[in-house]
């Protein structure tokens, strides 16, 4: 999209489109990436509850893959993940490794 000029802006920088934060690619801020290990996942959904963004997709009460468009790599999901028999279902890996 072509960036708008100053004559095309809403007064006061007010955003009139509901839910437009979905378009904001916060995933570009990430330096560590959460990786989901499905075999260790007990589907407790703690990661989905704790995620401060919309980075964990869920359907029919079960989590799916990470949405890396939004995931900032904060690591809260990995910290909260209880895992299965002492094995984490989410681990953080450094980007670019």
């Amino acid at each position: 999209m072509k960036p708008r000029g100053w004559k095309e802006l809403n007064p006061g920088a007010v955003i009139t489109e509901a839910g437009s934060a979905r378009k904001f690619k916060t995933g570009s801020w990430r330096s560590f990436k959460p990786v989901w290990i499905e075999e260790n996942c007990i589907q407790c959904m703690m990661c989905w509850i704790y995620c401060p963004d919309m980075a964990i997709t869920a359907k029919d009460g079960k989590r799916g893959e990470f949405n890396y468009y939004f995931c900032k790599g904060c690591g809260i999901c990995a910290l909260e993940c209880p895992g299965k028999k002492g094995k984490k279902a989410i681990v953080m890996e450094e980007e670019g490794q």
């Binding site: 708008r4 000029g5 802006l9 006061g12 920088a13 007010v14 955003i15 009139t16 437009s20």
Partner: peptide
Amino acid sequence: VSYGPLILSDYYME
């Protein structure tokens, strides 16, 4: 509507 969005170097000057 949302008030107070973060406006960085791409739009602040506009």
